[in-house]
Design a protein around this nucleic acid. Structure first.
Lengths: 138, 138
DNA sequence: TGTAATTTTGTAACGATTTCAAATTTATAA
DNA sequence: TTATAAATTTGAAATCGTTACAAAATTACA
């Protein structure tokens, strides 16, 4: 079975045409797209797609933990179809978001969780200048 | 000299009445306020204060690294006058943001930085349920 | 004291997100 | 099948956080 449909079902989501398209977009792109990027890109294949559907679907996917919501960029929410633990880097110049490995020895080991809280998600964000922008900046 | 004015000068910011009031608010409250919270709370003492001034001032303070911008909550930007390294926890139920210590042995040691980037800031966010909400939830 | 530079202010515009009710599609039962 | 109910999608309008901008007020400087 299609890995996208499988992924949705695993998270208790009925795989409608729109949901599959949106989830597939997220799983096949490592661009950490915004709502608008997803909407505009899918528009060509699905002319009837509504912006509201993209919002609704992303909310549902978030609720069921089928994607990762990146709040690294204060100007826009970004989405990541890769839910495996990894950190992110936002370049303040080109605004691109890069995947970076989690720190410490074992690759995907999360930072130690704080006491007294029931931690459900951990996000590690860096910002600064990416390699290219570091060179290009005057 | 007043520690707020001192803080502003240290970051190359001319201490106007409004800037001092906003920076003082941030340094004396550990509530991680939003723009609106700052504006509404200062309103009573400074009736002529403009929302735009709060936005302008927070932008300036961010630019000069005189505060920390928290993007942990996708619904609202929060600000933190404490720029010492520490992590944050957002409760999904009561929406409160809590300070939590950075993980690892030495208290304020940041997670290792990724190669190939010029890292300027690091943010470690957790979300889930706080102690109180964990008990109260159904 | 006068002039320039900086800062603050309020209104209007903008853009992302939500609300909501109608239309469509899908599931269920006769 | 066909009828009916439930779920999903859609588009328009409303909402809300943020930005743009130009005028007013304040501060710095000669």
């Amino acid at each position: 079975m299609d890995f996208v449909i499988e992924h949705l079902k695993k998270h208790g989501i009925k795989p409608s045409v729109q949901r599959v398209a949106i989830m597939r977009y997220l799983m096949e792109h490592c661009t950490h797209p915004t709502v608008d990027a997803i909407y505009c890109d899918l528009q060509s294949q699905m002319p009837t797609l509504s912006r509201t559907t993209v919002y609704n679907t992303l909310s549902l996917l978030e609720e069921r933990d089928a994607l990762s919501v990146l709040t690294i960029d204060s100007r826009n929410i970004h989405y990541d179809g890769d839910t495996r633990p990894h950190a992110h880097f936002l370049c303040r110049r080109c605004k691109q978001i890069f995947d970076v490995p989690m720190p410490q020895g074992s690759a995907d080991e999360m930072p130690e969780t704080p006491a007294g809280f029931k931690v459900e998600h951990t996000h590690l964000y860096y910002d600064g200048l990416c390699d290219r922008c570091r060179v290009e900046e005057n």
